[in-house]
Simulated scan of single mutants.
Amino acid sequence: MHGEYKIPGGKLVVADIETHGDGADAAVSGAVISGDFFLEPPEALPAMNASLVGLPATASVADMTAALTRAAGPGAQLIGFSPEAVAIAVRRALGHATSWHDHTFDVIHDVPREPHLQMALDDVIAKEVGAGRRGPALRIWEWERNTVVIGSFQSVRNEIDPEGAAAHHITVTRRVSGGGAMFIQPGNTITYSLYVPTSLVEGLSFEQSYAFLDDWVLGALRELGIHATYVPLNDIASPAGKIAGAAQKRYTSGAVLHHVTMAYDIDADAMLQVLRIGREKLSDKGTKSANKRVDPLRSQTGMTREAIIESFLGHFASHYTTVAGAVTDAEVEKAHVLVGQRFSTPEWINVVP
């Protein structure tokens, strides 16, 4: 059985695994780990292979990582990979985790929708993936109006200046994921959501899964000439400034919602009038001005928003199996029900006052 794991910003780890026994009695009988990583001393690799033999085929990433770490020894230098990365590749080989190439992704460039409906659709589509009623998908959003999207744990009064919001005709909505506030002006942002089964991030921590699910868009940005990097926990940045922020929710039904908002262009003055960005947050980012925290894609590429989106989708399709998709009428109907029951209600929007 064959499994692979490409570490974001690191190397490819490949696991070729043999097992004996059936069901709960199945165990690893042979293991060959390979890849384009570096390892000193090289004798550590056979020891790591041997450490996997005899482990139950159901062994967790944590258990495998512990065995591999002991086998490598305290003096080993693993460069470009880690025992945990090996364990993830092994779990994939054993069929407990999946890779990008195990899936066909619906690619959806959606129509403009009002903010509360966007929040509800994210929830509905993720749950449809978790229930197995649709495959994984990438959805590009279009916004119908000026919006601030706050994280599920943020305080409305701490984040939003009501006078500024009124002056700029802002609709405030709350998403199901955590993270910070996103200032949206139609045509000035690029927002996308990934809806994937949890098997794709099996064995990854939240922080690792952010980097893993954002890795493709870093490649897309580099194709546009932007040296983009992932900045833990959930930012995408370039030497010129922050480009995007991500947020994520894992559902017990077996799905992950990962969504990202990028600045294509930005009215920084309007943003500062609407968002109450605290001094503590600015100082943590090493800057005195919120105006300088974000550097939009338009100024870095000179390209239209439409051309950047087309380039992103082309990059995604060149790396993974994709088909043209759409939000279904049934999903929109479910989302409208949720808007009325939850996402547009004062109780939800002000759940943290």
Rank of each mutant, 00 (worst) to 15 (best):
Y251L: 14
A247M: 07
A263V: 02
D269R: 14
L218Y: 08
V256S: 14
W216Q: 06
A247L: 10
A220F: 05
V231R: 13
A247E: 07
S283F: 01
I243G: 06
L275Y: 05
Q248K: 07
Y230E: 00
A247W: 03
T287A: 02
D267S: 12
V231P: 00
A255L: 06
L218F: 10
V256Y: 10
A237L: 02
L257Y: 10
M262K: 03
D269Q: 15
P239M: 05
A290M: 02
P239N: 08
L272A: 14
M262E: 13
I277A: 05
G254H: 08
K288V: 06
L257I: 14
Y264I: 12
S253W: 08
G241I: 03
A240Q: 15
V256H: 13
K242T: 01
V274C: 11
A228D: 04
S289T: 10
Q273E: 15
N234D: 14
I266Y: 03
A270V: 02
A220N: 11
A220D: 09
K242F: 00
A244Q: 04
L221T: 08
G219D: 05
L282Q: 10
I277D: 04
H259D: 01
A246W: 01
D284S: 12
A244H: 06
L224I: 09
L233N: 05
G225H: 11
S289I: 01
K242A: 00
E223L: 08
G219A: 01
A247G: 11
D265P: 00
V231K: 13
V217T: 14
T229M: 02
R276F: 00
I236P: 00
G225R: 11
T261P: 01
T261S: 15
H227N: 14
G245W: 06
Q273N: 09
K285S: 05
D235K: 11
E280G: 05
L221D: 08
A237E: 13
L275I: 10
A237F: 01
V260K: 02
S253V: 15
R279S: 13
K249R: 15
I236D: 05
A290H: 08
V256K: 10
N234F: 06
I266C: 12
K288W: 03
G225Q: 08
I243E: 04
D215C: 05
A268P: 00
V256C: 15
L275V: 11
S283P: 00
R250V: 13
D235N: 11
S283D: 10
Q248G: 02
H258I: 09
M271F: 05
R279D: 14
L233P: 04
T287W: 00
A228C: 07
K242S: 01
L233F: 08
V274S: 08
G278E: 12
A240R: 15
H259T: 09
D284G: 04
T261G: 13
T229N: 08
I277G: 04
S283M: 02
D269F: 04
A244C: 11
T261E: 06
S283I: 00
L233E: 12
W216I: 02
A270S: 14
M271N: 11
V217W: 02
Y230K: 12
V260L: 10
A246S: 13
E223G: 12
K249T: 13
Y230S: 09
H227I: 07
A247R: 13
M262V: 03
Y251K: 09
T252R: 15
M262S: 12
E280L: 03
P232E: 14
L275G: 09
